[in-house]
Design a protein around this nucleic acid. Structure first.
Lengths: 212, 212
DNA sequence: GTTGCGATGTAAGCGCCGCTAACATATGTT
DNA sequence: AACATATGTTAGCGGCGCTTACATCGCAAC
């Protein structure tokens, strides 16, 4: 009992971790992906990283700030994926645009918790400048592709509005899929096919709609 | 109404509340709408209802079960709204279907927190039978309208798939709107117009080839 | 009307959380 | 070597979800 400097099983019970910031981000990301962002506790992340629960406050203002960092990195990765996929399928083509949508959903499925953080309701995240900034860059990419498509195919219509339609649809698909809301209604749905089949209709110019 | 002789006037500090279950549901709904479902604490609801924090456990298994009840009632209200709006605009018409989508978004805007509960990721809600059931009924309504529309307009295509497309789009619009994700990209967006302009394209049968 | 009992509320308390303040240790510059 | 700073620890505050044991109420049987 009492105090003693007895070493633990750990090779070297360092007093200082050394890379605690990154270690906490990694632990948080893992735990959030496992148990969901709502059930995540900072204390658990501390245990994974092997530090006490007060340690994180040397690197982050609080729990929220770790989540912000993860969301911001998520936008960067999503943008990277989009650009990669479009480069493979062809800039400004229908196939490229469909592939972007499918990549969006794939990201949501593979990094569900990060995706939820990125687009969730947490108001403090909406105010974090670098989060909003990376998100905006991400969308600009879509507009560019749509504008190019419209130009090539002589589609009359605002590229921004068409891009918004596409984003809306694809985001809906991703949300309903990861929240398992399709299950009660169409458990066997193939979302990639759904996107491929809906995209052409969304890419058309706005029809003269009969008021709404 | 007054099948019960219970005193309507709040007498002084009764030991028994009398209608605690409903009072807690009401308090929860209010608090969740004010501060968000994640920040909501059962203890606060108890304070609003004027009881101790142990009282709810006579009526609910725990915090989660109150939220389930609210989600379930939300589905019922959403279905009611949908049916009302379609009855006004015309069964199986384009206008009726657009109006349903707009009603969906209106519900999400007016009852944001309830909407999030209904379609959120909380896994325990997905297992609650009456929640899933009412959600399913809600969607069946959409399929019926689309099927009727397709028959009248001789659209070849699976009504279920087309309904899924519509739901996907409209759910995406509602999500992006209430999570304020449009803000970083198109702050002035008119979602009702977006729905009206996108719906015709979504109602078409799956194209066998894109234009050109 | 009294009595007994189930339903419903309170009081007290456990373990966990986010966060803070004061203290201890490591790191690097001079 | 000595200090300044960065980084981790110990101890603790208030709050939460939930449980157990006790108090009170309402109603039915006698």
């Amino acid at each position: 009992m009492g105090k003693k400097p007895a070493s633990k099983v750990r090779s070297k019970a360092r007093y200082h971790h050394g890379e605690l910031r990154e270690a906490l981000i990694a632990a948080t990301r893992q735990l959030v992906e496992e148990r969901g962002a709502e059930k995540f506790t900072l204390a658990d992340a501390c245990r994974v990283a092997g530090v006490t629960t007060a340690a994180p406050y040397r690197h982050f203002r609080g729990k929220q700030e770790i989540l912000e960092e993860i969301a911001s990195r998520g936008f960067e990765e999503l943008r990277k994926r989009s650009m990669t996929v479009v480069a493979e399928r062809g800039e400004g083509t229908l196939e490229g645009i469909i592939a972007m949508g499918q990549a969006y959903v794939a990201f949501a499925v593979e990094e569900t918790a990060v995706f939820r953080l990125m687009f969730g309701q947490e108001p403090s995240l909406k105010k974090a400048e670098h989060v909003v900034g990376t998100g905006h860059d991400c969308f600009t990419n879509v507009i560019d592709q749509v504008a190019l498509y419209c130009k090539r195919n002589r589609v009359r219509g605002d590229a921004q509005e068409i891009a918004l339609r596409l984003w809306t649809f694809v985001h809906g698909a991703a949300s309903l899929l990861i929240d398992q809301d399709y299950n009660a209604v169409a458990p066997q749905i193939d979302v990639n096919r759904l996107i491929a089949s809906a995209t052409p209709g969304l890419l058309a110019a706005s029809p003269r709609s009969s008021k709404g």
